[in-house]
Computed example of a mutant assay.
Amino acid sequence: MERRSLLRAAVLGGSTAAFGGSLWRGAAHAAPAQPGTGPYGPLGASDTNGIRLPAGFTSRVVARSGQTIPGTSYTWHNAPDGGACYADGSGWIYVSNSEINPSGGASAVRFSATGSITAAYRILSSTRQNCAGGKTPWNTWLSCEEVSSGYVYETDPWGTKAAVRRAAMGRFKHEAAAADPVRKVIYLTEDETNGRFYRFVPTAWGDLSGGTLQVMVAGTGTSGSFTWADVPDPDGSPTATRSQVSGSKSFDGGEGCHYADDTVWFTTKGDNRVWQLNLLSNTYELAYDDSVVSGTAPLTGVDNITGSASGDLFVAEDGGTMEICVITPDGVVAPFLRVDGQSSSEITGPAFSPDGTRLYFSSQRGTTGSSSGGITYEVTGPFRT
Results as ranks from 00 to 15, higher is better:
V264I: 06
L337W: 01
N272R: 00
W24H: 13
A240W: 12
K249F: 08
A297G: 05
E346N: 15
G366K: 04
Y40G: 00
L213P: 05
F314G: 00
G373C: 00
G221D: 13
D230P: 03
H77K: 13
G134H: 00
V326D: 00
R273F: 02
S107T: 15
G311A: 02
T227R: 12
P298D: 00
E190Y: 10
G104S: 09
G373A: 05
A17W: 03
A168R: 04
T227K: 11
S246R: 13
G381N: 10
S237L: 15
N78K: 13
A28V: 08
V339F: 13
T380G: 01
S246F: 13
P202N: 11
S281A: 14
W275N: 01
W24V: 06
N278L: 13
Q214N: 04
G150T: 11
G256L: 08
Q34W: 04
T16A: 12
G159F: 10
S65E: 08
T283S: 10
R199Q: 13
L124V: 07
E154N: 10
A119S: 14
V245Q: 09
S103Y: 12
V302P: 03
E192C: 04
G82I: 00
S343P: 09
N278C: 12
V185L: 04
A27F: 09
L43C: 10
S96G: 06
S370W: 06
R358H: 12
M216G: 04
R199H: 11
V326Q: 02
N139K: 13
T212F: 02
G219T: 05
R60G: 00
G331C: 08
E378D: 08
Y198V: 08
S372A: 15
A79H: 12
D233S: 14
N97E: 09
S248K: 04
S148M: 14
G50D: 10
G71I: 02
G356S: 11
W76G: 01
P354C: 11
N139H: 15
P350Y: 07
S73T: 14
K161C: 02
D262N: 11
S5K: 15
A10H: 09
V332E: 10
V109H: 07
A168G: 07
G295D: 10
T368Q: 09
L337D: 03
D88L: 14
A167W: 11
Q244H: 14
K135W: 01
Y151E: 13
M322Q: 15
N272D: 15
F57E: 01
A167T: 15
T48D: 14
Y360L: 12
H77V: 09
Y187G: 01
S344K: 15
D303A: 02
G13W: 01
S148W: 14
A113N: 06
G254P: 07
P232K: 12
R3A: 14
R384G: 10
D355C: 12
Y360H: 12
P335A: 00
F251S: 02
